[in-house]
């Protein structure tokens, strides 16, 4: 067997969902129909057995480590999801997820990055969706918290950088969300569901219904989040690509009316500065920009 064939065979056996022995039996069952030899013999020819342990049990050590290592990382990444689903359902979820989405990243940090998509759309997760319709939202929220923890750095726009601006210059101030900020819209009240999960409480009835909008960000290495009203979420979405303050006011006027818009935009800006959501740049201090 070539090195490549050896590695393919070991990788398949190690990642088999029910362990090496079951994988060999399954392989044998398939092969016997084609009179193509048997998998156990193939393993024995490849891996040395001795008096202390046979080849299957030696390979099983790697198979057990494969599952438990990734399972442990995903448990740490998705604590509220674990609490919501319970250990058995989460265990089954990881098993079926790894069959469809084996880790392809050099780092375990990214092993769970497709879990929310898997929960929302894969047929293997249909049962979980039926019982916990908000599971995908919960996973997406918890992943966003991981994502901002080590997201790209940048200078935070501070209130004092804007204090010295003349009133007439203020409209030209360019506002942009920092790369450490994520905006998410969910079909369920995810912050309440996450809090219930973290505190090991059971969410039921109305507590599980209703769309929500959330901003998640990092500040001084702490991951923070807060729920947003529809119009604030839309305003922040406008800033995800960057916008001048006067353009924000103009957009707000269309949504809130001419009279209310300036005060609301100013109040939002105060809050965003206090939260540390905006990135500082030359343009954000009102310096002339080339358009």
């Amino acid at each position: 067997m070539s090195l490549h064939e050896t590695q393919i065979a070991i990788s398949d056996w190690v990642r088999a969902p029910n362990g090496v022995a079951a994988a060999l039996a399954e392989e044998d069952a398939k092969r016997s129909q084609r009179l193509d030899g048997d998998a156990a013999r193939r393993l024995d020819e490849l891996i040395r057995s001795d008096g202390s342990l046979d080849a299957t049990r030696r390979l099983e050590i790697y198979a057990n480590a494969y599952f438990s290592r990734i399972h442990g990382v995903l448990r740490a990444d998705y604590p509220a999801l674990v609490a919501t689903l319970g250990d058995i359902a989460f265990n089954d979820l990881v098993t079926s997820y790894l069959l469809v989405e084996p880790s392809r990243s050099p780092s375990l940090r990214y092993a769970g990055f497709r879990l929310a998509d898997f929960l929302s759309s894969h047929e293997a997760a249909a049962g979980l969706r039926e019982r916990w319709p908000w599971a995908s939202d919960l996973a997406a929220f918890e992943w966003a918290r991981i994502d901002v923890f080590d997201a790209k750095d940048g200078p935070v726009l501070a209130r004092r950088a804007l204090e010295s601006l003349a009133q007439e210059s203020f409209g030209k101030v360019f506002l942009c969300l920092g790369p450490w900020v994520r905006l998410r819209v969910f079909e369920h009240p995810v912050v309440d569901l996450w809090r219930a999960g973290i505190h090991d409480e059971t969410a039921a009835g109305d507590a599980t219904r209703g769309a929500s909008r959330v901003v998640i960000w990092r500040r001084e290495e702490k991951v923070l989040h807060r729920s947003l009203e529809r119009n604030e979420e839309a305003a922040l979405a406008l800033l995800s690509l960057g916008s001048r303050f006067d353009a924000l006011c103009e957009w707000a006027a269309g949504d809130l009316g001419e009279d209310a818009a300036p005060a609301q935009a100013a109040a939002w800006l105060e809050r965003w500065l206090a939260d540390g959501l905006l990135v500082a740049s030359e343009a954000s201090s009102g310096a002339p920009t080339r358009n």
């Binding site: 090195l3 490549h4 050896t6 590695q7 393919i8 070991i10 990788s11 190690v14 990642r15 790697y62 480590a65 494969y66 290592r69 990734i70 084996p102 880790s103 392809r104 990243s105 050099p106 375990l108 092993a111």
Partner: peptide, 25 residues
């Protein structure tokens, strides 16, 4: 060692056969 093949990662340090072919590789 090797840690995965065909683009997947087993996140483990798997041993190699001790052969001249593998030394060259």
């Amino acid at each position: 060692c090797w840690t995965g093949v065909s683009g997947t990662n087993l996140h483990d340090l798997l041993p190699l056969p001790y052969t001249n072919e593998v030394i060259d590789h």
